[in-house]
Simulated assay, not measured.
Amino acid sequence: MSKVYSRTDIIDKRQRSQTLVRGLKILELIAGGKSDLSIRELAEEVDLSKSVVHRLISTLEGERYVQKNSGKPGYRLGTKLWWLGCAAVQGLEIKEVARPHLEDLALKTNELVVLAVLDGREVVYLDKVDCPQAVRAYIPIGGRAPAYCISTGKVILAYRRDDEVMKITSSMKKFTSNTVIRMESFKRHLAEIRRRGYSVNFGEWHEDVGGVASAIRDGKGYVVAAIGVTVPIHRLTKINIDRLSRLAMPAAAAVSEELGYGGSQKGASIG
């Protein structure tokens, strides 16, 4: 049943949209080189009242999207925007670099191959290569999954600090009988992933789907993504796990090398 919105709801939505657009215009203005303008001058540039611009700037500053210049008027872009920009560029770079290796891995495994990154408590699938088999797994590009119960998510978490893992997995729930939700067991599981260099999903999110994944590192050795091979659970035999891991690890290593990493896929430092 569709929801009926009142006139007040519609007005509130419009006001929130206007606020967002106004804030973005101020950010674009500062990014365009006008970082020495006072609140009054900013207000004139964006054709808004001084009080509205002051409120917007205060919000942006509080969220670290802008910073007040020291010793002179105006505002500069903040560290939060720098982080977002780096994340966007990095995501595009990884996708472009990884694509031929995804295609090669899909050809060798004859299975669905995915590229995933961590976003909060979930992984997001940046790219994939489907497999031609009649019975196959399906994952949409842009799709999301709980990081703690799929192979790509677990191999990324294996190289995160304990406090970050605790935060991400603080509300784990059991999706299937194979989902690991006890923290001590999960930590041992991550240690095993680091030891062998790949992770396995034994139907821990959806009981009929499993997979194998290996981590991708950037030039500083930080795990930034993962390549995974996703299969129907009946094809996830011990022999096939060995075969898929032997193929996935070199693929991830090749992407890591192109991103500037020159170390081992196993037991790298946690950061």
Rank of each mutant, 00 (worst) to 15 (best):
A213I: 05
E207P: 00
E207S: 11
S171A: 13
E192K: 14
A147N: 01
A145E: 15
T179G: 05
S151M: 08
G203Q: 02
A215H: 07
K167C: 05
A213F: 03
T152E: 10
L190R: 09
E164W: 04
A158E: 05
Y198Q: 10
V212T: 07
R217D: 02
T152C: 06
K167W: 15
R217T: 04
G197T: 06
T176N: 11
A191T: 09
R160P: 02
I216D: 01
I193F: 08
V180R: 12
I193D: 02
V165C: 06
E204A: 10
A215R: 09
S171R: 15
M166P: 00
I150R: 07
V212I: 12
R196E: 13
P146E: 05
I181V: 15
K173M: 15
I193A: 01
E164I: 13
T169E: 01
K154W: 00
I150G: 07
D218A: 02
Y222R: 11
P146K: 03
S170L: 08
V155N: 00
E184R: 05
I216N: 00
L190N: 02
I168D: 04
K173E: 15
F186Y: 15
F186A: 01
A215M: 10
F186I: 01
R160F: 08
E192G: 08
R194H: 01
S151F: 10
E184V: 02
E164R: 06
R196N: 04
S170A: 09
R161A: 12
S171H: 15
S185L: 12
G203D: 03
G197I: 11
I156L: 07
R217I: 04
Y148F: 14
K174R: 15
H206M: 11
S214T: 03
R217W: 00
A213H: 01
T152Q: 01
R161T: 12
F202N: 11
Y222M: 07
V165M: 03
H189T: 04
K174E: 11
K174C: 10
F186L: 06
D163Q: 13
V200Q: 02
